[in-house]
Design a protein around this nucleic acid. Structure first.
Lengths: 218, 218
DNA sequence: GTCTATAGGACGATAGAC
DNA sequence: GTCTATCGTCCTATAGAC
């Protein structure tokens, strides 16, 4: 009944919406390239418009401010990071193997996406604070890792202290230590052969040794 | 004979030189405050002049560009860092205690001087590359740590592999992992009680355990 | 060494025509 | 949604008087 009228109006709207989403995605892609060239804090609306071959005012039809671009990138990063962790954990058995697989996937993603990784984990843009909404995925990442530690403890592969806040903190310091040194001193290196990233398995072993079931370390 | 003439000219020159050095030191102090408030990349000549209550052109009598200010800060940071490491190592016995003491001193300094630490170890200022001259002290820091590892191996406190490049790389990843997480997520915390920094002794123990004399780890 | 004045440019963001 | 034009602000750096 109302189908023709609806189609007449809605199909063009959908096409426009899709085209708009594509443009937004392209803007974010170019923003990452700029931040890769000029530093994570080097993104500007002017430069972004230049890279898109449009005029600055046109950009404001998609993002109300440069901060909004940062926030959209932050959200994209958190969501990719979460998806990568899920995928990494899904393809290994519960317990220690799953935890290792997840952390390795996170490390590989960070090395392959240094700009987003820095934006997410080191806050290098003065004045930018992610919106609570964009931050949401980060909580889930932590929850997944916490669960991984609990499973490894339940399986008897790690001592109970590994599932404490201290265990999680130590694990993050070890994991991000490798990544931080890689990004600062060996950004061109790849995951397998990088000066620092090649130590990631070793670092995980150190964590496991510290919290091996029966170990006395608190 | 020429003494009076020399004194008439040289004494005022020394006073001026000393006053100039004091002014330069004050400029650098204020620059650190600005970078602490506005982010490490937030230093500008205009803002620096405002903070000094002088006009921008006057600043150029002391530093030819904003980059020169960054470089002077970088040099100051490297030299302080080296001095702190020397002092830390000097007040402990050779071998493992000296290595621990040196690394702890470095960690304390970084936590107390987050701006300089970020400038030295994470290069957060787009476009700034330290001059080779300003970088010089960094080599000496590495040499001291290398020597500390060698001594600990010679004393039988660590296995020979600890003194390898891989050992040094692992040690730096562990040390800077704690610092990196601290600066990003707990910058207000102090060394003893900080969420991450309180784990510094633990990560040193992990390193020692990995390379304990007789351990099979490569 | 200090200042005033200024050149010359980049940036964020908006108004309003089309 | 695109553009031209523009405002206001901030910046680096220099010229030249005192």
């Amino acid at each position: 009944m109302t189908a023709p009228a609806e189609r007449d109006k809605r199909v063009p709207l959908d096409r426009r919406a899709r085209r708009r989403a594509e443009t937004i995605a392209e803007i974010l892609d170019r923003a990452v390239v700029i931040m890769s060239d000029d530093g994570v804090a080097g993104l500007t609306m002017s430069g972004l418009a230049r890279a898109m071959s449009i005029q600055p005012p046109s950009l404001y039809k998609y993002f109300p401010s440069v901060n909004a671009v940062h926030d959209a990138l932050y959200r994209r990063g958190q969501e990719e990071n979460l998806a990568v962790l899920r995928a990494g954990m899904a393809c290994a058995e519960p317990g220690l193997p799953r935890l290792r697989s997840g952390l390795t996937a996170l490390g590989r993603w960070a090395v392959a996406n240094p700009v987003l990784a820095q934006l997410l984990f080191w806050r290098p843009v003065p004045g930018f604070r992610p919106s609570p909404d964009a931050f949401a995925a980060a909580d889930e990442v932590v929850e997944l890792l916490r669960g991984g530690l609990r499973d490894a403890v339940a399986a008897g592969q790690l001592g109970p202290a590994a599932a404490s806040e201290r265990g999680l903190t130590l694990l993050s310091a070890l994991h991000f230590g490798v990544l931080s040194q890689h990004l600062a001193n060996d950004p061109g290196g790849d995951w397998e052969t990088g000066t620092y990233t090649s130590l990631h398995p070793t670092v995980l072993e150190l964590f496991e040794a510290a919290f091996r079931a029966g170990a006395s370390r608190d």
